[in-house]
């Protein structure tokens, strides 16, 4: 099973309202597509190219941070998808990043958040309520991302509400 797969790229493309081209794996099992008559290889590169094609401008710092997160996710998510112990550590790292930042790259929603959400979707989906409690910041972030317009166009939102909202957030005053 592969987490950073054709399906995720297609979902990101749908979110960005940008055609993804003939996406497939090449002979080295690397995601490949053709955008603007150019070969684009690798999950991170494809997602970033789609973002710039869709016309959402980013600062260089943000582009690099996105690239870093997309590479991180492409590197480890496959193993996380198959190995629950590995998944736990993988999610803990992301949880730590989201403790201090609202979004993966800081204060602004980027394509990295969208792509990461689609990749993590199946991993988080399998977690028990208790396991989710240990990654509350990821849950908070997922809930926010899936509330963004167009994110849940083709996938139902993760049912996170039961846990974070009624159990953990205290009834305020």
């Amino acid at each position: 099973m592969c987490a950073c797969n054709v399906e995720v790229v297609k979902l990101v493309g749908k979110y960005l309202n940008t055609p993804v081209g003939p996406i497939c794996y090449n002979t080295d099992k690397v995601l490949t597509t053709v955008l603007d008559k150019q070969n684009v290889e690798g999950f991170a590169s494809i997602v970033l190219r789609l973002a710039s094609k869709s016309g959402s401008p980013m600062s260089q710092e943000q582009t690099l941070l996105c690239y870093q997160w997309l590479e991180h996710i492409a590197m480890y998510s496959n193993q996380a998808a198959t190995n629950p112990t590995f998944a736990k550590n993988f999610l803990q790292d992301i949880n730590k990043a989201l403790e201090k930042n609202t979004f993966l790259t800081g204060q602004f929603l980027t394509v990295a958040d969208i792509a990461a959400y689609y990749v993590l979707y199946s991993i988080i989906e399998r977690l028990s309520v208790l396991e989710r409690e240990s990654i509350l910041h990821v849950c908070r972030w997922s809930k926010h991302i899936q509330a963004q317009p167009r994110v849940c166009a083709s996938k139902p939102p993760l049912p996170l509400n039961t846990l974070t909202l009624s159990l953990l957030a205290p009834a305020v005053h």
Binding site: L136, C139, P170
Partner: peptide, 8 residues
């Protein structure tokens, strides 16, 4: 505590 589970 309120913002633990919420972005805004």
């Amino acid at each position: 505590a309120h913002l633990l589970a919420r972005t805004f």
